[in-house]
């Protein structure tokens, strides 16, 4: 390869990256700019706000119970994450480290539950919650996580497998039972994995639209932000400035968390795919 060709290649790759990068950022910029336009301007295809309507953010909170949506999202995502940890960390540990009967069929069931589209089993589960008179509340969204979350179990198990067996053996020799090994050895060593599983669980619940649509759409008091945002359009359809302000608000927490936990995130997502 000639130097000239090499230089050209590097230049071309740079150009492609920069072009793609701009295309990735453009939607974000447009949405952010629209969020500070007044409602008349948003219907003109304008690109630059004139005037800058910062009050859209204030009006977002006035026009809709955005604060309550945030709280519900926090309850949904936080509750799910907490429950998931309680149920899934021990189970993942057993599947990774303890010899038990039926380990293979149980693990197989976890994998299938993880991969199965949730809609396949939606009807009977809905019927179940309806019989318990819990439709309309956040319980059908949160409570199941107290009984294991297949993807998290899988992810955590993958992480536990990476911890050398010698640590477990040493802890056993030191007289620890299974719970002791889990809490004193595995959990401290698997902190990044647990963090990744927690963040995934949190984001999945935060972003969930289908669950709230099915279970809490009838009760605006229990709308999380993702559902509220989709319905906000319904009642304030052409106030695009305010809609975009709510869109920005819904995204902000996710982005902030990402910047604080970027490493954990990328490691976690890599683990699901690569070491699978």
């Amino acid at each position: 390869m000639t130097v000239r060709k090499r230089v050209l290649t590097v230049f071309a790759e740079h150009a492609i990256l920069i072009a793609l990068g701009i295309m990735f950022l453009v939607p974000v910029v447009f949405v952010a700019l629209t969020s500070v336009m007044n409602s008349g301007q948003t219907l003109t295809g304008a690109l630059w706000p004139k005037p800058w309507e910062w009050s859209n953010y204030q009006r977002a909170f006035e026009k809709a119970p955005v604060a309550s949506w945030f709280l519900n999202s926090l309850l949904y995502a936080g509750g799910s994450t907490l429950f998931m940890l309680v149920s899934s960390v021990p189970m993942a540990y057993v599947l990774a480290r303890v010899r038990i009967r039926f380990a293979n069929p149980i693990f197989f069931a976890v994998i299938v539950a993880m991969l199965l589209p949730p809609q396949v089993i939606q009807v009977p589960i809905y019927v179940l919650w309806a019989h318990l008179h819990l439709v309309g509340t956040l319980w059908p969204l949160v409570l199941p996580h107290l009984f294991g979350h297949a993807f998290s179990i899988f992810l955590l198990r993958q992480f536990f497998l990476t911890i050398p067996q010698e640590y477990t053996d040493a802890a056993r020799i030191d007289g620890n039972g299974e719970w002791g090994i889990l809490t004193r050895v595995m959990v401290p060593m698997a902190k990044p994995g647990i963090a990744a599983a927690s963040i995934f669980m949190f984001f999945q619940s935060w972003n969930d639209y289908y669950g709230p649509l099915l279970y809490t759409s009838e009760n605006p008091d229990n709308w999380p932000i993702a559902y509220g945002l989709a319905s906000f359009h319904g009642t304030h359809s052409t106030d695009w400035g305010v809609i975009m302000a709510v869109t920005v608000l819904a995204t902000l927490p996710v982005v902030v968390v990402f910047f604080f936990a970027q490493r954990v995130f990328v490691e976690g997502i890599t683990l699901t795919g690569v070491k699978g």
């Binding site: 021990p90 057993v94 089993i121 009984f147 294991g148 297949a150 719970w179 889990l182």
Partner: peptide, 15 residues
Amino acid sequence: SMMILGLIGLAVFFL
């Protein structure tokens, strides 16, 4: 005891 929650979950929310 470590498995019980998950096993209940598999039975009630999957099988």
